[in-house]
Amino acid sequence: MASFPNVYTHRKVSETSSKACEICYKPSTSVLVTPENKDFFYVCAGHLKDRVFCTPIIDEAAVAAKKKKAMEAEVERVKLEFEEKQKKQKEKEKEKGKDKEKNEKDAKAEDKKKLEEVEAEAIVVEDEPRVFVLKKAFYQQRINKKRQAEVARRNRERLQNPNLFPQVPKNIS
C-alpha cells in the first residue's frame, strides 16, 4: 500500500455526522482529510491548536490578500465617513428648506446604505480550509493504522477463497 502525504485539510461536518475524536473520543465535527481522500479522521478543534499534535501550514499569499482587502474596506469606510461629515458642515452653512431637507435625508439614507454595505463586506470573512502537517509520531500512527486495515482486508478476502484450504484426498486405496 502506498503511503499518503502528511498534508491534512481541516473540514467541518454537520452535528448529525459528528463522530468520536481520534485522540480523546469526544464527539467532534472537525475532520482532517488528506488530498484525494486517502485518509481522514475526526479530531477536536482544540487538538488542532496543540503544537505537539500538528502544525498549520500558512498560505502567505492568502493572508496578504485578506489584509489588503480589509485595508481597502477600512479606507472606503473612512472616506464615506469623511464625506458624510463634509455634507453635515455644508448643511449648517446652507439655508434650511423643506425641499433641501428631503434631498438631504435621501442622500443620508444612501450614504448609510453604502456604509452598511462596506461594513458588511469587511465583516464577511472567507474561511479557507486550513491545512495542517501532523507530527511524526501521529503521522506514523496513521500510516500503521491504514496498513493494518489493508492487511485485515486481504486476510478476509483470502479466507473467503475456497482454494485456500487443503482438500481431502480422494484417491485413497
Rank of each mutant, 00 (worst) to 15 (best):
M1K: 08
M1R: 12
P5Y: 13
V7Q: 14
T9V: 09
R11P: 01
R11G: 00
K12G: 04
E15V: 08
E15T: 08
S17E: 15
S18M: 05
K19S: 01
K19M: 02
K19E: 05
A20Y: 02
I23L: 12
K26D: 11
P27Y: 05
P27E: 02
V31D: 03
V33I: 12
P35W: 05
E36D: 12
E36N: 15
D39T: 06
F40Q: 11
F40V: 00
F40G: 03
F41Y: 11
Y42W: 03
Y42C: 01
C44R: 00
D50P: 00
R51S: 10
F53V: 10
I58K: 08
A61E: 13
A62S: 08
A64I: 12
A64S: 14
K66L: 08
K66P: 02
K67A: 07
K68T: 14
K68S: 15
K68M: 10
K68E: 14
K69V: 03
K69W: 02
M71F: 07
M71W: 08
M71S: 14
E74L: 08
V78S: 07
V78L: 15
V78I: 15
K79A: 13
K79Y: 09
L80S: 05
E81G: 14
F82M: 15
E83G: 04
K88Q: 11
K88M: 08
Q89Y: 05
K90E: 15
K90G: 10
K92H: 01
K94E: 13
K94M: 09
E95S: 14
K96P: 04
G97A: 03
G97C: 04
D99T: 04
D99E: 08
E101W: 04
K105N: 07
D106E: 13
K108W: 01
K108V: 01
K108A: 05
K108M: 04
E110M: 03
K113C: 01
V118T: 15
E121L: 06
E121F: 02
E121P: 02
A122I: 02
I123Y: 02
V124F: 05
V124I: 06
V124H: 04
D127E: 06
E128P: 00
R130T: 06
F132T: 03
V133I: 15
L134K: 06
K135R: 15
K136R: 14
K136I: 10
F138G: 05
F138A: 13
Y139V: 04
Q140G: 10
R147I: 12
Q148Y: 04
Q148K: 09
E150P: 06
R156P: 00
L159S: 03
Q160H: 06
Q160N: 11
P162R: 09
N163V: 08
Q167W: 10
V168H: 09
P169V: 13
P169H: 10
P169D: 12
S173M: 11
